[in-house]
Design a protein around this nucleic acid. Structure first.
Lengths: 229, 229
DNA sequence: GTCTTATTCCAATGGTCATTGGAATGCAGG
DNA sequence: CCTGCATTCCAATGACCATTGGAATAAGAC
């Protein structure tokens, strides 16, 4: 053993704890959440997470040393991405435990997202059935590059900041199912509130692209299909 | 917000990171592994994990504040247990990522458990089929109290330390499937080595009792069925 | 080559956590 | 109530981590 530990058990637990340490900072969980939407450059991550580039880089190094993320170089810039689906599933397990066990999570969700049913969540099965028949428009509220990196097949892309100016793209009588990065992302609730203010019938799909894909449902890449550019 | 954070995202990520912090120490991952086998008192945990009672208590407090474990009081002593199956699944997700991503885990496993197929692992389905026909004896090598707290239905309990003295309980021509706490526990490999030295045909079941139970397979409690006391 | 841009490295700060030994708590039994 | 036992609390130490600003690297453009 080259590790500092003494026995097998200790050596293994040191490795398991490396993964835990990587998850032990709110900054890093936020970065992982962003990376779950597709690869990003350091500067983009720093801007999204509202921290300095230097600090972002340091945290990304920590994640890289725990092998939770991998890098790709393209000229002068370096793109980070999750190392695999197992990392996303780990992240989901953390959030599931946090939501089930920590009352604080429930409080924050309630305070910022409103009461549980206020957004009239729509389930996967119902959405698949009704979208097939054209009864529901699936709306992706994330930034364009995240949509391009992977989105629910058939979804229309209108980033939240551009939503108010591009309402014309949505037929007024349409029922809309809006989604964003996942169940803890504020974009969908914000977008739905705005849509309702303009008279739309809008409901929330709590899934993100990864939940959707890992459930075996169809995902597409690129910016053509339902986009407005 | 009463938290120190500024925004929703930050507040939520602080909560998620609480879970990560709880997993960020090898001592705590070891305690969680032990607690996954059933409830234990503080002193028992300290002895198993080879650390002082004071330190064990401190780490258990940390786990309790992250709501990963719960307590039950019985007179002067306090028993700790995992807060739920979701916590076990989180632990499993951490270990899956560690095993898939960290080369060090593979090295440790190889060094202490031997080559992957050396223990001739037996799968759940094969074991169920052959145990039903009486062709295979399922052997639980964990301490007696862990066996009593929950074991694979029909398994015989012989703790590893008592194995050599109680070989008479195992018919010489029997094929044996040995299991212990789970895939990273050293008891089964040790027990299998001993059994083979005495001429037995012994193979390993990598599952622990939780993996078995969560796969929907039958589990029993108490110390009667196949025990030797 | 020099310049520009993106990213990482380095050094120094303060804060948080692990660990220890000793004291305090809380519960049963006499 | 006093005693004994299991556990937790407290205070103090050292180690590690986050964060910052400034310097260094690496790749491409001119």
């Amino acid at each position: 053993m080259t590790t500092t530990g003494r026995s097998t058990k200790t050596a293994l637990n040191e490795q398991f704890a490396r993964i835990g340490k990587a998850l032990a900072s709110p900054r890093r969980t936020e970065l992982l959440d962003l990376l779950a939407q597709g690869e990003h450059g350091v500067e983009a991550l720093a801007a999204e997470a509202d921290m300095s580039v230097t600090l972002t880089s340091a945290h990304l190094q920590a994640l890289r040393q725990a092998r939770l993320v991998e890098t790709r170089r393209d000229g002068p810039r370096i793109f980070y991405r999750l190392a695999g689906d197992d990392v996303f599933e780990l992240l989901a397990a953390v959030r599931a435990v946090a939501h089930a066990r920590l009352a604080e999570v429930e409080q924050v969700v309630r305070a910022y997202f409103g009461a549980p049913d206020e957004l009239e969540p729509i389930g996967r099965d119902e959405l698949v059935a009704r979208a097939r028949g054209g009864e529901v428009v699936v709306l992706d509220l994330r930034p364009r590059d995240e949509y391009a990196a992977g989105h629910i097949a058939g979804a229309v892309s209108i980033p939240l900041e551009a939503l108010e100016e591009h309402l014309a793209l949505l037929p007024p009588e349409a029922e809309i199912a809006a989604y964003c990065r996942g169940p803890y992302c504020v974009m969908a609730p914000r977008g739905i509130a705005l849509l309702r203010r303009h008279g739309y019938r809008a409901r929330r799909l709590a899934d993100g692209v990864n939940e959707w894909r890992l459930a075996g449902l169809p995902v597409a890449t690129g910016s053509e299909p339902g986009s407005w550019s």
